[in-house]
Amino acid sequence: MAVREGELKSTFELCTLVDELGVFATGEIAMNGTDGEKGAVFIERGRICWAAAKGLARRLTELLASPTGLALTDMGSHFQACKDARRPLGEYLVAKNVLSAEEFRQALLQHALESLEVLLGRGARYAFRAHGRGGFDPRFTFSSIEVASNLGAKKHWAAVAKLSPILATLFDGEGEWGAAFVRTPQLAFPEPIAAFGSDVPSTRELLRLGKWAASALDVTGAFTDREAMLTLSSPTGPASLVAFRDGETFVAGATGIHGPARILNARAKERRHGGPRDASL
């Protein structure tokens, strides 16, 4: 029975839907376009497990073959073996050490992103049907934020490579999180390209904070240096919200009470060692 229906134009809308369905949601989001069935997205316990789009049937095999250097014909024999063993292909390949768990995970994520590109768009309708079937290995499922930020990361990989260690250094405490964003003319909101930390909020919340940070940093840029860091004491607890620019990207996140001092200290140390800019930690 369809419990929920509507239009899904973008991956961000899909991720928001998954968040709204809740952490216990398990089922299938069937996608339809103007020309009929397009495919489906499977979720289990609020995480995205698998996205299948018409026309991309062989794509996962290609993605799995790529890191291993295996010919597609060799993949065929593995495919038959795992079919006989009644195991999913990727999990079979990991168990047989043909590829690492991380390589499999990256291939699955890439496959999901490419499938979503086909499934979602103007006029794409969805119907979510909850069901009790599951069985996906949790190691190979993805949070909505992971999917949303990796969508941007694929386009802005150089910025992500630079910012990921910064995020990992600055937001490594319990309950802390940080996300990097870029602004593009194609989207009405800053696009998340990386997220790090133990308590990253929902997609909707992350996009809301990204909008706030972009706007607030525009304001601070009018009276102080572009790389300045803005810190707000949280009205609801001991945490602080921080935001700062790094080149064409910006970072927003939540830290513990000593987080802002730790960031400022890291910046000061960097300057002492001849770092080029505040944000290049």
Binding site: R204, T220, L230, D278
Partner: peptide, 24 residues
């Protein structure tokens, strides 16, 4: 704008007690 929490879904900005902007 800078001494208020990010607006909620209904665009309400909650005042915060303090904030700061630090540059070099």
């Amino acid at each position: 704008q800078l001494c208020a929490a990010p607006p909620s879904d209904d665009d309400v900005e909650e005042p915060v007690d303090e904030s700061f902007v630090v540059s070099q």
